[in-house]
Simulated assay, not measured.
Amino acid sequence: MRDAAASASLRREAEAILRATVDAPAGAPATTVADVRHRILLDRIGDELERDPWLRLSGVDELVVHDAEQGTSYGASITAWLDELGDIATAANRLRVHPNTLRHRLRRARELFALDLDDPEVRLAVWLELRRSAQPPPPGPRVS
């Protein structure tokens, strides 16, 4: 029975590694759990948010629907800003918009979706949910 439990554990670990590396380029070196533990953690948190929707912030769900229906970029804007650790200039450059445009989007997102982006725990939850809901667009060419 002990071998069966060990086998099941190893299988879960292998599946988690495969899931975390599904986007790795062909011919990439072998990956260990230590290499992708952070991705496995994010995948598991995302799974939990899918299993129990009441855990999600309603404002993020509203934002995602609004972006899809209205063609806005609030989610991508917040994600870029958070990915750049709040650096407006770098995030705006990444999005290829003027810094004032990004400031406006962040202010409107706060207003429209009641997201307290000044609270570090809310920022973390928003970032996790936005990462779960859609992959942000890849960084475009830098604007000088």
Rank of each mutant, 00 (worst) to 15 (best):
R103M: 08
H38V: 08
R44Q: 14
G59C: 10
E50F: 03
V33T: 07
D61G: 08
R131W: 03
E15Q: 14
E50V: 12
T32Y: 06
D43H: 15
W54C: 06
P139Q: 11
L85F: 10
S73V: 03
W127N: 05
E84D: 12
Q135A: 15
V33E: 12
V126I: 12
A6L: 14
D67Q: 11
A8K: 00
V64W: 11
E62A: 15
P138K: 13
S144H: 12
E84Y: 04
N93W: 00
L117W: 08
A8C: 04
D47P: 03
S9Q: 12
R94V: 01
R19T: 13
A28G: 07
P138V: 02
I45A: 05
E62V: 03
A125L: 11
R12Y: 03
G86T: 04
D87F: 00
H38K: 10
D43Y: 12
R132Q: 15
A16V: 05
D118A: 10
D87R: 04
A92M: 04
L63Y: 07
A14P: 02
R56Q: 12
Q70Y: 11
I17F: 04
R11I: 05
L55E: 07
R44D: 13
V97E: 01
D119T: 07
R110G: 15
P137K: 09
V65M: 05
L115P: 00
P141R: 06
S133I: 04
A114R: 13
V143C: 05
L128K: 06
T101G: 01
A76F: 00
T79F: 03
R56I: 05
A8H: 05
A91V: 02
A24Q: 14
P25Q: 13
P120G: 11
P99I: 00
R96K: 10
A68Y: 09
V22C: 10
N93F: 01
P141C: 00
E111T: 11
A24E: 15
V143I: 15
A30Q: 13
L41A: 13
E69K: 12
L63Q: 04
D67G: 09
E62M: 12
A8S: 07
P29V: 06
L57K: 02
A80K: 03
T72W: 09
L128R: 14
P139H: 06
D43R: 13
W81N: 04
V64L: 15
G46L: 08
E111V: 07
A14D: 09
A134G: 08
T90N: 01
V36N: 09
A91T: 05
P136Y: 00
E129V: 08
S7G: 14
G71D: 14
L57Y: 04
G140Y: 09
T31I: 06
D118I: 00
A4H: 12
V97N: 03
A16W: 06
L41S: 07
A5W: 03
A114G: 02
P136T: 03
A68M: 11
P139C: 02
Q70P: 04
L117V: 06
N93H: 06
G86L: 04
M1G: 15
A125S: 14
H38S: 11
P136C: 01
V36E: 10
I78P: 01
L42Q: 11
S77E: 02
E84W: 02
R11P: 00
G75A: 14
E111I: 06
R19P: 02
D87A: 10
G59K: 10
L130F: 10
E69P: 01
R51G: 00
H38A: 15
D3N: 15
E129K: 08
W127Y: 14
R105C: 00
D23Y: 06
G75Q: 03
L115H: 02
